[in-house]
Design a protein around this nucleic acid. Structure first.
Lengths: 128, 128
DNA sequence: TGAAACCTTCACATCAGTGTGAAGGTCAAG
DNA sequence: CTTGACCTTCACACTGATGTGAAGGTTTCA
């Protein structure tokens, strides 16, 4: 698959796909003519990257996190330097804090919306 | 409390406090000499803002979300225009997606770290 | 053969959240 | 009265994620 198809499949601009490659988040094969060529499983990978980015992780961190997440573990033992482990632990904490903040605020917004709706409806249901 | 103290209490630079004010996230009283003056409860507010920013919400959205989160509801009915409600609903979805992505990846990282540690320890415990 | 639709690299632009620092006002303490 | 530690506004700089578009190569199809 070439870059255009990957872009279409993932809803990601070509520009960004090249950017992710530049940042070391994905790699590409090259055809004889220089065109990038991607394996099918890259669609998921790109989506995962988007999710992590949207979740607030910078590409620098994603680059370290990603290889640990591939399901058929390729690098459990090999590349797991103490530094990587340390970075990952820290990042885990930050993710947890983000989750907490998001959850708290999601709940608050939900509650608010519920109140507003509960207050809008009865007025028409009961009074009508 | 003046800006310096608020900055110290919240671990936020003065620059950013002014920026948040500029973006309409906080307001300040002014002393006779022009210095900003803050109520004690602003510390929490700033922390909440930091949390939301870190969670990926832009100031534009935070500005809309924040007033709905104040606990003694000041604006349940009054300012709840349909547009605000709509924005909030959408933002709620985005927050949920972020939470999901973060949770998924947190779990994956946790699992990875567990595996690495489980593989590092027995080697020394059992073999020793 | 030439147009359309891909692709390449490169460079400059934008936006938000920040930092940094200049130029200057205020106030308390020596 | 001066010094130091605050404060003010303003403006420019940076970073990271993105858009845009130029200048040019490749492939396909009429």
């Amino acid at each position: 698959m070439r870059i255009g198809e990957l872009a279409d499949r993932t809803g990601t601009s070509r520009r960004l796909l090249r950017y992710y490659e530049e940042q070391g988040l994905i790699v590409s094969q090259r055809c004889a003519n220089g065109y990038r060529s991607y394996d099918d499983r890259f669609a998921d990978r790109v989506l995962q990257i988007r999710g992590l980015l949207d979740a607030g992780l910078p590409t620098r961190v994603i680059k370290q996190v990603l290889p640990c997440l591939d399901k058929p573990r390729a690098i459990v033992f090999s590349d797991a330097t103490p530094e990587i482990i340390e970075t990952l632990s820290q990042e885990l904490e930050r993710m947890q804090r983000r989750i907490d903040a998001l959850t708290r605020n999601r709940d608050a917004v939900t509650e608010y919306l519920d109140e507003v709706r509960a207050q809008a409806r009865p007025a028409t249901e009961v009074a009508a």
